[in-house]
Amino acid sequence: MLAATVAQFVVQSTASLQGTVTNWTEPLPGPMQGRASVIDGDTVEIAGQRIRFNGIDAPESRQYCNDAKGFDYPCGRRAAQALDQFLAASRPLHCSFVDRDRYERLVGNCNRADGRSVQKWLVEQGLALDWPRYSNGAFAAEQVSAKAARRGVWQGRFDPPWDWRAADAEKVETVSEQSTGFGLLGSGCNVKGNISVNSGEHIYHVPGQKYYTQTVVNPAKGERWFCSEAEARAAGWRKARR
């Protein structure tokens, strides 16, 4: 009975995070222009309307990537900050729409007042990825350029935003289990063993460290939990520097 309750809680929690698919029958609005407020690296708001850029995917606001030296940095926040500066240089923003997404946002192609494509610029700067699932490779050339020049996320190692969201959803499920008394945290095994996506180094994080909360343990990648620092060190993992 308790297991069923936990399962139901996890499903409800995950659904509330992922949103629900809405069948829209009303027509899409015509082109819109205005002063855009940045929500994150691939989403803006104009006059109270959320707009998701079509065909690209930027790191999430809480996402961290590895820089050229293998250190973590907030790539999601960096993308949003760079986008804000880019839009401020040539206002207003012009958008035309192709769809609505499951979060009720308009999905559109957007250009600055000077005609520059926002999506192309974001991908070219390595601040977002071409999302083949929706772009049909429209920004593949810009991505090749960014990767060759090691701009933005291409300077080091990173998880594509769609993979990061999937891992984050697993983390939410784990936290749901922990809230009911199950899971490794509930047993006192709260040391997170993480493998650096840049160097492959095995690093462990303990509660109170700077990146402990953001660190996700993915057993499929060889990562694991430890019940003590001594156990982690004995297994060949080193402590995170911060």
Rank of each mutant, 00 (worst) to 15 (best):
R102D: 11
A36M: 02
C65T: 01
M32K: 14
R77V: 08
P31L: 01
A4D: 14
Q12K: 15
G208S: 06
F158W: 11
V172G: 03
E170I: 09
N54F: 09
C189N: 06
R242L: 12
L17Q: 15
A15E: 14
V21E: 15
V206C: 04
R224Y: 10
I46W: 08
T5A: 09
A15S: 12
C75F: 09
A68E: 12
P160G: 03
R133H: 07
R35T: 12
V107G: 01
W24D: 11
E104A: 13
C227R: 07
I56N: 05
G208C: 10
T174L: 14
P161C: 07
G183D: 01
N190H: 15
R62P: 04
S176W: 07
D40C: 00
N111V: 11
P132K: 10
A146W: 05
V144A: 12
W131Q: 08
L17S: 05
E60R: 04
R241P: 03
T174K: 15
D130E: 03
L127I: 04
E173R: 13
Y204T: 08
A169F: 13
V172Q: 14
G126S: 06
D163H: 15
A232V: 00
D72V: 00
E26N: 12
A88I: 04
N198T: 09
R224T: 14
W131C: 04
P59H: 06
G115T: 08
F86K: 07
A169L: 12
G76R: 13
A166G: 06
A68H: 09
K69T: 10
R242Y: 13
A234Q: 15
V144R: 13
P29V: 02
A89Q: 09
S117N: 07
N66D: 13
W162E: 15
H202M: 14
V98K: 15
Q33K: 15
A79K: 13
L83E: 08
N190R: 12
S135Q: 03
K147F: 03
K239M: 12
